[in-house]
Amino acid sequence: MSLQDKVALITGSTSGIGLGIARALAQQGATIILNGLGDPAQIEIIRANLAAEFATPVHFIAADLSKTAAVEDLMQQIDAQCGRLDILVNNAGMQFVSPIEDFPPEKYDLIIALNLSAAFHTIRLAVPGMKARGWGRIINIASAHALVASPFKSAYVASKHAILGLTKTVALELAEHGITANAICPGYVMTPLVQQQIPDTAKARGISEAAVIRDVLLAAQPTKRFVEVDELGALASFLCSDGARSITGTALPVDGGWTAH
């Protein structure tokens, strides 16, 4: 229960990677702020189950993170409800697969807003309190696509390369304030985000969905298996520990060896 006195916001945490990280931090005793999309009744079940399983306070605050005003309102609500924010995990994101000449401009703008700009805004609003307390953990969920590129993902790859640059800059600015900033760079994880892009990738490449999984998604991962959500939760939990206080400004691939190529 090493995080028992800490408050953690995990964006995009009603499913997939975000929920896995929320579970890992709740297991360490952190007060959890869930945020994400989904059916309100189902989200309440997730919130209540998480609170009961780990005997820690769990809140849910809805916000459209693609809008600056909504991010600001989210952070104000956290301050009003919890009085502090110690751990910020920027996980919310989206994907769209298309050749660049056909890429809808509105999709590009939305991906940049959600995958990149939302993280900038949560960080800028969280940092003053972290500085005042002399402790903070900022974890940006990037991607192996923060380090390498793939075709047909121009907006996503651009946003993930940029989030890594943001992470490094923030780490340098906050290095003397007891605050670390790191980027976790997963390979392919079987989450709703990945499931949704399989048919789009099949269409873009003119191949079957089975071929997308075998020859596209897992082709570059030497382990030939999807990364598991629990692995990412374990790493996030470690980054929040005192044992990771000298780890900052880094990109930490969890990609089955993909970026070793």
Rank of each mutant, 00 (worst) to 15 (best):
1 M>F: 15
10 I>M: 06
13 S>T: 04
14 T>N: 04
23 R>F: 11
27 Q>Y: 14
28 Q>E: 15
49 N>T: 12
49 N>C: 06
51 A>Y: 03
55 A>H: 12
58 V>D: 01
59 H>I: 05
62 A>D: 15
66 S>V: 05
71 V>P: 10
71 V>L: 04
72 E>T: 14
73 D>P: 09
79 D>N: 11
81 Q>D: 10
88 L>K: 01
96 F>T: 02
97 V>P: 02
98 S>P: 01
102 D>Q: 00
110 L>N: 09
110 L>M: 10
112 I>W: 07
115 N>L: 02
115 N>A: 03
118 A>W: 00
121 H>W: 08
124 R>V: 06
128 P>R: 06
129 G>L: 02
129 G>E: 03
130 M>L: 05
133 R>M: 06
134 G>T: 09
138 I>C: 04
141 I>L: 14
144 A>F: 15
146 A>M: 12
146 A>C: 13
147 L>V: 14
150 S>D: 15
154 S>H: 06
158 A>T: 14
162 A>E: 09
172 L>I: 06
175 A>R: 14
184 I>A: 08
184 I>H: 03
188 Y>S: 10
189 V>A: 13
199 P>D: 01
201 T>G: 04
203 K>N: 11
204 A>Y: 01
205 R>N: 08
207 I>R: 04
211 A>G: 02
214 R>C: 13
219 A>P: 03
221 Q>K: 06
223 T>A: 13
226 F>M: 11
226 F>L: 09
227 V>S: 11
239 L>Q: 03
249 G>Q: 10
255 D>H: 02
256 G>D: 10
261 H>D: 02
